[in-house]
Structure formats: structure tokens, C-alpha cells
Design a protein around this nucleic acid. Structure first.
Lengths: 189, 189
DNA sequence: ACTTTTGCCTAAAGCCTTTAGGCAAATATC
DNA sequence: GATATTTGCCTAAAGGCTTTAGGCAAAAGT
């Protein structure tokens, strides 16, 4: 019997692909086994359990997103950087809906601290250096940006804006214009 | 054998309570049957299937949220109304995390059109009458508000802001200040 | 009181998760 | 190259959730 060559990495990647195809919460150890044409129990040598698999996919997605964000931010600042970063999230969500959903998985604090999540926070802070904000407003702004990016993408993905004019691309541009204006003109407490 | 008195409404309500206690995605027909001390199959006379149960909980949550929003908006306008509406969402999410998650469930267009979702959209539009926005900016602003409310609450619920100063209440206030400033000073295209 | 309806039951099949223990393929050792 | 060890995928099995089919008894209607 030839071996399938399973590894945690290959399983995670295949799981991510599966997530993009059928949705993150349809990612199941069984479905993954089917995809490798292997018995279900075989996967349990490489992955602790179903939750572990999902966590690995989430971590992969966070890494990929952080890599893209780093590329996008390189050499840009101000509104340019803001738009670039925002588009990284939105484009990734459109290209990889399952992975994007995975990236939202709640991680336990320890795992989260070791994840690419911290790179995301650092990059958003770096972006804000192009605006004139000092603490604690900078932290407020980091959170606001995170909220808008995540909230917009998640509503758009969920069909919340569908079937109504004007189109979502237009809203997205105007939203970024608005955020840029807001950051340049942050209200005093 | 005395009867348990099951109805779709009682099941939906109990399902919502269960969601708040154990999380929306742990809401299961089996768990609900256990709660009524009844055999699993018995529920299938009142609820089509698991998905149907979840949808009913989502619709309940949307109604409750819309009712609260209507109360909060009554007699308020401008920033007052903005803050009141925003707090309705945030408070509801804190009080009823499972229901709030349920309210995010993707509904098919037909169901969505008949849900309290449309009241939410109407109320957000009504709120914006306190600011000086015309179409299509009003629609952009509706979507932006939805994104911020949902994004913020969802990140906060997911622990995204945890364990870091300043506290989230402070950020929330400043976020609403910022949104108010932005709406009063909406940038031209 | 009798019939009809309704509500909850038992039974059963299907799929997913997870653990335990086995055999054979790959790898290391002599 | 032959032997020993490790590793990888397997079979088997138990437990949980979903869903359908068909039955019996409690409520409701006549």
C-alpha cells in the first residue's frame, strides 16, 4: 500500500482550500480524508483533532494576510497605505472566503500571541504614523480601522449590501475617503 | 405520558437562551430536546430541521434588536440618536452573545426581505436625516455605520481588543465621537 | 361516549469524531 | 544487503447529532 504523504502542513493547506470551496464551517476531518483518499483515522496522527485542524487553518490565513499586508504597505504612506491595506483584507476575503472566515476564529490568548495577529496590529500602527495621532488616540484609531475593515468585508461577504444601488465598490472607495478624512481630522475628546 | 407543550415559538426562545449560554453554533436539536426532557425526534414536528431552528433564532434576534433600536431612537436625533443606536447593538451583543451571533446568520434573500432586517436599514436611514447627506452618500453612510457597529462589536466579542489599554469603553466613546464628526463633515468625492 | 387529530415516542439509518491496536512500508543500523 | 526500528495508514468500535418512518396515547371535536 503506497503512502499518501500526509503532513500537518499539507493537511492544513488542503483544509484551507476546502474552506474556500465549501465554507470554513464545512471543513471536517472526514471531508479532508476523502480528499486525500485516505481513511479518517489516518489524519489523527497529524492533527490532534477537528479543532486543531481549524486552528491551523486560521493561523495559515493570518500569516498569508500578514504577508500580503506587508507587501502592500512597503513604500507607501498616508492615504496610499490606508487604501492598500484595506484592499488587502477585502481582496483576500473575496479570493479566499473560507480562509478569511478562518482568520476570524477565536484563538486562545497564548496561541493568539504567537500568531501573525500581532504583525497585523503592528502594521496598522505603522500605517497610522502617516497621520498625526498620539496615544491613546492611535489605539482608538487602530481599533476603528480594524472594525471598519472587518465589519465592511464581513457584511459584504454575508450579502448584507447585495442587490441595492450604489454598488459596493463605490461605497468601499467612499468609505476609504471618509476614513482618510477622519484620520487627518481626528476630533478632540 | 404528560405532554411537554412544545411549540415552534417555545423552541425558538429556548434555542435563543441556549445560544446565549453555550454559543450559537453549539445550538443543536439534540441539546434542545435535552432541555425539554423530550426525545430528539419529537422536535421535528415543530421545526423542520436544524437549519430551520437556527433561522428562527436569527429572526427572533433581529426582531428583538429592531424593537430595542426603535425604542432607543424615539425622540432622539443627531449624535444623541447615533450613540443610542450604537449602544443598542453593543449592549445587545454583550447581554445576548448567542442571539447576536444568530442575527448575523446569512439568510436567503426571500427570508431576509421578510425579516426585521429591513427595519434596521430604515432606522439607520432615519438616523442619518439628522445629518446633511444626500444620495448616494446616505447609502454609503448607512453601510459605513453598519460596518463599524458590526465590526467593532464582533471584534470586541471575539476578544480582539482584550488585555490592552486603553479600555474598550473608552475606544467605543471615541469611535462614536469620530463617526459623528465624520457624518457632520462628510468629504466630497 | 366516540372519533379524529395531534404530540411525543421507538426504531433505524447515515454521517462525523475520536481512540485503540495492528500490519506494512520507510528508515536506520549492522 | 539483511535486520531492526520507527512511522504511517489501516481496521474496528463507540458515542454523538440529524433526520425519517411509523406507532400509540392524550387532547380536542362531534
Amino acid at each position: 500500500m503506497a503512502r499518501a504523504g500526509l503532513t500537518p502542513e499539507r493537511l492544513t493547506l488542503a483544509g484551507a482550500e476546502l474552506a474556500d470551496e465549501v465554507g470554513f464551517d464545512q471543513v471536517t476531518v472526514s471531508a479532508l480524508a476523502r480528499r486525500f483518499d485516505v481513511r479518517v483515522a489516518s489524519l489523527y496522527s497529524h492533527v490532534r483533532n477537528s479543532q486543531d485542524l481549524r486552528t491551523r487553518i486560521a493561523l495559515l490565513a493570518l500569516e498569508e494576510l500578514a504577508d500580503r499586508a506587508a507587501d502592500a504597505l512597503a513604500g507607501r504612506s498616508g492615504k496610499d497605505a490606508l487604501v492598500a491595506l484595506a484592499n488587502v483584507y477585502r481582496d483576500y476575503a473575496h479570493e479566499h472566503p473560507g480562509r478569511y472566515t478562518a482568520a476570524q476564529l477565536r484563538l486562545d490568548p497564548e496561541t493568539a500571541a504567537a500568531s501573525a495577529g500581532v504583525r497585523h496590529a503592528r502594521m496598522t500602527r505603522a500605517l497610522l504614523r502617516g497621520y498625526d495621532l498620539t496615544e491613546p488616540d492611535q489605539t482608538h484609531a487602530v481599533r476603528l480601522l480594524g472594525s471598519v475593515f472587518h465589519g465592511y468585508v464581513s457584511l459584504e461577504m454575508g450579502g448584507g449590501f447585495s442587490h441595492s444601488a450604489p454598488d459596493t465598490q463605490e461605497t468601499w472607495s467612499r468609505t476609504l475617503d471618509a476614513l482618510d478624512a477622519l484620520l487627518r481630522n481626528w476630533p478632540a475628546p
